[in-house]
């Protein structure tokens, strides 16, 4: 109970100085060698009903708070936690092989407007309409493979979840496009994320089974193209309770 009360108080304190955000996004993963793992699986089984697709397209959901760091320079700090998922499946004579790659992440974006760093610009509750962001992140990769409804990763009868860690950094742009009901700001975002030395040996092992050789090294540098929509809830803090004013349309 004490933990719960502490958490509620912390949340209340955080809410007092920040805006709550929710991000829904699509990710395009560029990793040729990883794609080959799926290709090899297919190539070895020309008799399959359908094929495993590469883990190219994934979806993510993130939640966090946006803290104003330096209003005049339009600098905002945006810590978030999120989950991203890629999946594919193939039917081999009515037995499905299902492959899922889930990634849990903690990231801390810094939103800024290069112009605002050197000039005075008008800004709304979340800074300027256009902004850039840099986004360092730490991720946990959790692959899951299942064939004929049986999990691949087991120890005895126990299902286990292999875990790999990686870090990444992203650079991107966003646009505070619309305010809805004076409560929510909607922002499309686009970014490129670079993950050096990501490991996927567990997934490779599961998909390839005894077929070695698709990957000579288990570590790969990955490029992720992130697109998404960010919803930020602007807590009404003015005495009138009418929320913030819209940001300017030409800054």
């Amino acid at each position: 109970m004490r933990i719960l009360i502490t958490l509620v108080m912390l949340l209340h304190a955080v809410a007092g100085v920040s805006q709550l955000s929710l991000h829904l996004g699509h990710n395009y993963l560029r990793a040729q060698e990883w794609d080959n793992v799926m290709h090899y699986y297919n190539y070895a089984r020309p008799w399959q009903d359908d094929e495993l697709k590469p883990l190219s397209h994934g979806y993510d959901i993130r939640a966090g708070w946006i803290f104003r760091w330096k209003a005049i320079k339009s600098l905002y700090v945006h810590p978030q936690i999120g989950v991203r998922q890629f999946s594919t499946s193939a039917n081999n004579n009515k037995e499905e092989l299902f492959v899922r790659l889930r990634q849990y992440s903690i990231q801390c974006d810094v939103n800024f407007n290069p112009r605002a760093l050197f000039h005075n610009v008008s800004a709304g509750p979340l800074g300027t309409r256009w902004f850039m962001f840099v986004s360092p992140s730490v991720q946990v990769w959790r692959p899951y493979v299942e064939q004929a409804e049986q999990a691949f990763y087991t120890e005895g009868d126990e299902e286990i979840s292999p875990t790999n860690w990686s870090w990444s950094a992203a650079l991107g742009v966003g646009y505070r496009a619309a305010m809805i009901s004076k409560q929510f700001i909607l922002s499309p975002k686009f970014g490129l994320r670079y993950t050096p030395k990501a490991e996927l040996d567990d997934l490779v092992f599961a998909v390839q089974g005894g077929n070695p050789g698709a990957l000579e090294s288990i570590q790969r540098n990955l490029i992720l193209i992130e697109t998404g929509l960010e919803f930020v809830w602007i807590f009404p803090r003015t005495k009138s309770g009418k929320g913030y004013m819209k940001p300017c349309s030409n800054c």
């Binding site: 089984r45 399959q48 037995e95 064939q147 089974g209 005894g210």
Partner: peptide, 14 residues
């Protein structure tokens, strides 16, 4: 074993 290339192949022959 039920997770192998041969098992997958054999099932094609139903």
């Amino acid at each position: 074993g039920e997770r192998s290339l041969w098992y997958d192949a054999v099932r094609e022959a139903a």
